[in-house]
């Protein structure tokens, strides 16, 4: 599983670059790197469907980012300003939060089953029923389309909502005066 760790480190590194770099285009590309390494990690964890969707979504996300950046500006001017007390305070709070969150999540994660050994209480039933009753080859498809079909409807609705939302927000005139 050494590939997984390498990819994690890559994505963390690319994430830091995406956050810190001054050129917003480079930032969006770095975000793309994170997304693609996530997609490869999905493949490594035996989730090919996820990887496909992730790649599609990632391409879309980067395209949207680049589109917005090209329409506006690609320099992050806010990084040029000197840091003041407020910024240091915010960073201090983040450090405090990070330490506590990491600490508590380590404590909490200890109680979870080990990585690579899920409980699969419901899933074992799914695997049996999905094959015998639905006759589906792809079990993920069986879950999203049959067992949990309502979630998929919800997912489509969310997409629909955001399309209408984007259309709403991009209109030039909202209020009639």
């Amino acid at each position: 599983m050494i590939e997984l760790y390498i990819l994690l480190i890559i994505s963390i590194g690319a994430g830091i670059v995406a956050v810190e770099i001054k050129d917003l285009l480079a930032s969006a590309i770095s975000l793309g790197i994170v997304g693609f390494s996530v997609a490869i990690m999905f493949i490594l964890t035996q989730a090919p469907d996820l990887a496909i969707v992730q790649i599609v979504v990632e391409v879309l996300t980067v395209v949207i980012f680049v589109g917005v950046i090209l329409k506006t500006t690609h320099i992050d001017t806010t990084l040029e300003d000197k840091l003041n007390v407020r910024d240091y305070l915010t960073k201090g709070i983040f450090a405090l939060f990070g330490i506590f969150f990491l600490l508590f999540s380590i404590l909490a994660l200890k109680e979870l089953p080990q990585f690579g050994m899920p409980i699969m209480k419901i899933a074992s039933h799914y695997l049996v029923k999905g094959f015998e009753e639905i006759r589906a080859a792809n079990q993920v498809a069986a879950v999203i389309l049959d067992f949990r079909g309502y979630d998929t409807l919800g997912e489509a609705t969310v997409l629909f909502t955001s399309v209408i939302g984007v259309l709403t927000i991009l209109r030039k005139i909202g209020k009639i005066k």
Binding site: T90, I93, F94, L96, F97
Partner: peptide, 20 residues
């Protein structure tokens, strides 16, 4: 916005401390 988030994260630190 960052001031708001500042206070909000102080809030979650307190919640984490109290509850855990």
């Amino acid at each position: 916005l960052s001031d708001y988030l500042f206070v909000i994260f102080i809030g979650i630190i307190i919640i984490l401390l109290i509850l855990i």
